[in-house]
Amino acid sequence: MPARPRVPCDHITLLFILAGGVLVLLTLLAVLTIAVPELADPLHLASVAGEPGVMDSLLLTFAAGFTAVLILALLGTPLAYLLARNEFRGKAVVEGLVDIPLILPHTVAGLMVYLLFMSRGLIGAPFAEAGFFFEDAFPGIVAAMVFVSTPYYVDGVREGFGKVPVRLEHVARTLGATRWYAFSRVVLPLTLRHIMSSALVAWGRAIGEFAAVVMIAYFPMVVSTLIYQRFATGGIAESRSVAFLMLALCLVLFIGIRWLMKHVGRYDDSA
């Protein structure tokens, strides 16, 4: 392993360290203001964690986020591939549509999801007739999560596809591979890292969503809704414990997945 280059110590570097340090310190401070009082009172934390509503909410949030990411993988991966490989009329429009949730206030996104998926909505109505409801239900939460996290997944994976030389597909085809074989055996494995990191970011975005989710499904409560509800009705201490639990879980998961990614999809013998 090569020695890490030392950070040089000149005026510009110091200035950059000062500027960047403000951001890092802010985040650290924010984490500590939640973590320190909670860790100082482990009994209260344990009792909150033991409440059925809290655990249910955490599980619900993670499961809905996971489902949203699965749906994104199934629908978003082909879209990302199309956008990465093809030039077509109206491509800019499609790109703009994919990115809309990035710039939209999430309450607007929530309203859109609600209007589409409510039981009288364009999509919700036919489902409601079949006895499948989105309002105040798991599918509604997933729908909102998919909507807001689509750009994070699609744009990331698309960048990954763009980095796989199209010639590798050509070569695979001349070696006898069908388009699907070339995609699944050459392009997909080479995009695995991008798919994983995009899925992670999309998942993070999904489980953190509040505004869009709450408009279609106040109940069952995802963690964001629960924290807000406790903040509004019970005060800081009530909401902070739930927030800390969420923070700790997310941290463990993110670190775990990042570690996993260090060992997946790297193809040089030196690693």
């Binding site: 010639r167 388009r179 193809y267």
Partner: peptide, 20 residues
């Protein structure tokens, strides 16, 4: 016919080996 049914082999300048 698509390339996979033409019975030809193509070697590019950069060889196009599959890195994975």
């Amino acid at each position: 016919l698509p390339p996979e049914r033409r019975g030809i082999a193509l070697v590019y300048q950069d060889y196009g080996l599959f890195p994975h």
